[in-house]
């Protein structure tokens, strides 16, 4: 995704119209991303608003062009999402390596209107660290080294969490499809 240069220039000049255009342009992809890191829609909106606040207030520190402006905004959103995870009660389970015993639950297909919602539900039911590592590695393309530095775990632990996430998600999706 590339944000047009006039929006970038306008935002750097603190033009309200350009700022609103940027918000409208980024809202839906950012909401999709924020949903992966948060437990509900309200938290996702909160993360997005805080991220936009940071983007618009720190836009003058951005030295790139329109080609990498979206990636810069996305990085801010991911960092804000991680801050949100740390600030919520879920941080308590951040350091625990013991996953929740939820392997046995099977969801009725009628509970979800779309398959996307079902996948999101599975992702939200993963342990917080496991889900975060999966999101960062599998969906955002971060390396284990980067993940270890970001969330304060070692690389081996990050690999274990990724393996655990894949195993659980595959199991839940397969069980639900068989049913």
């Amino acid at each position: 995704m590339i944000i047009s240069s006039h929006i970038l220039i306008g935002c750097k000049k603190q033009d309200p119209k350009s700022q609103e255009q940027l918000y409208k342009f980024c809202y839906i992809p950012f909401m999709k991303l924020a949903h992966r890191y948060t437990q509900n829609e309200d938290d996702a909106k909160d993360v997005i608003n805080k991220s936009f606040f940071k983007i618009l207030t720190k836009i003058n520190t951005f030295e790139g062009d329109e080609n990498n402006f979206y990636a810069w905004c996305k990085t801010i959103l991911i960092h804000e999402s991680l801050d949100h995870i740390k600030s919520t009660a879920f941080r308590q389970s951040f350091n625990t390596t013991e996953p929740k015993e939820e392997d046995s639950f099977i969801f009725a297909e009628s509970d979800f209107t779309t398959e996307s919602e079902q996948i999101l539900f599975y992702l939200r039911h993963l342990p917080v660290t496991t889900a975060t590592v999966f999101n960062l590695f599998a969906l955002e393309g971060y390396s284990h080294k980067e993940i270890a530095a970001l969330i304060g775990i070692n690389e081996g632990n990050s690999k274990w969490h990724l393996h655990s996430a894949r195993e659980k998600l595959q199991n839940w999706i397969f069980k639900n499809k068989v049913k």
């Binding site: 779309t114 996948i119 969906l139």
Partner: peptide, 30 residues
């Protein structure tokens, strides 16, 4: 941060595609 490449795990790719299909509407109150 690297962009997810084509050698991705099939499960990762599947989940990513499904999550991209999430139906989200613009909320002006935000």
């Amino acid at each position: 941060m690297n962009a997810p490449n084509s050698n991705r795990h099939p499960l990762d790719k599947y989940i990513d595609e499904k999550l991209e299909q999430l139906n989200i509407e613009f909320d002006p109150s935000g």
